[in-house]
């Protein structure tokens, strides 16, 4: 490879090819293909059971695809190419790529036995092996970005849901990922707390982060997303420009879904 070429700038950040996922006899993802480019904010919408969360969890290999490919910046995730043959990758190999992917969960999943600051510092110290002082600076910077620096020595249980989710965002950001995955980040929150989390996500998008968001918040999808993917029954029914999909969808099912949700 020529020394000056940056192999990653031309590649899509996330490339999914013909992804299938079955749980036992139940096939949840039935052949998903799409690309996410730098600075894209992709909203994934659809009815419950359509496979949205499963798709997202396949992107960082929390679920192992039954078949198909996921590539992050061109690098294969979950498998190695060994002279043309496909072999399952080791956990170490998978984790090397996971370091570049951040994920925010519906249930926040902050670790209750650590303070907020320790939660955010944990991965930089123990996974990226950064010295504690450097990790602390990064952590405090990210906590400041989500406006929670003053809570850094609190335990997660003492924070509201919205605050916990923002800490979760800071925790994911501390690893300096190339793409951030959000799995229904506001679905567990009371309506009053949803706004602060969406605002944080909006700031992230404005700063140029590549994001994939599974969400029911159509307002957010319309205002912040660049693209929207509509999933139905494990397949992509409709995808494209956010404005286009949300106001003038071609698919009838998508139209029905939106009319139900946007009422």
């Amino acid at each position: 490879m020529p020394p000056n070429a940056d192999p990653e700038s031309s590649q899509p950040v996330v490339k999914v090819v013909d992804l299938h996922k079955s749980f036992g006899a139940l096939e949840v993802l039935k052949g998903i293909s799409f690309e996410v480019h730098r600075r894209d904010v992709v909203s994934i919408i659809g009815a419950s059971g359509s496979g949205k969360s499963t798709l997202l969890r396949c992107v960082n290999h929390l679920e192992v695809p039954t078949s198909g490919e996921v590539r992050i910046s061109g690098r294969p995730l979950g498998f190695r190419l060994d002279g043309g043959r496909r072999r399952p990758d080791s956990l170490a190999g998978i984790n090397r790529i996971r370091m570049d992917i951040g994920m925010v969960f519906q249930q926040f999943n902050l670790w209750p036995h650590m303070t907020v600051l320790q939660n955010v510092m944990e991965a930089p110290v123990y996974v990226r092996r950064l010295p504690a002082a450097e990790a602390r600076d990064i952590a405090m910077g990210n906590l400041a970005k989500v406006d929670l620096l003053d809570k850094r020595d609190e335990c997660p249980a003492r924070l509201s849901g919205g605050q916990q989710q923002r800490v979760a965002i800071a925790r994911a950001l501390a690893m300096q990922p190339k793409v951030m995955l959000f799995d229904e980040p506001t679905s567990s929150l009371d309506p009053e707390l949803t706004a602060e989390v969406l605002a944080a996500m909006r700031d992230l998008a404005r700063d140029g982060m590549t994001m994939m968001v599974v969400t029911h918040e159509m307002g957010f999808a319309r205002e912040v997303s660049t693209n929207v993917i509509f999933l139905h029954d494990g397949r992509i029914e409709e995808e494209g420009d956010a404005d286009h999909v949300l106001t003038k969808p071609r698919s009838e099912r998508c139209r029905q879904f939106l009319s139900r949700v946007l009422r």
Binding site: N60, L62, L91, A92, N95, R96, R98, M99, I101, G102, M103, F105, Q107, N109, L110, W111, P112, E122, A123, Y126, V127, A168, R171, A172, M175
Partner: peptide
């Protein structure tokens, strides 16, 4: 809870960690 473990996996922590 499974979620705590998933959060660890998502930040690329290995099983032992």
């Amino acid at each position: 809870p499974r979620g705590h473990i998933d959060a660890g996996r998502a930040v690329a922590m290995g099983r032992a960690l």
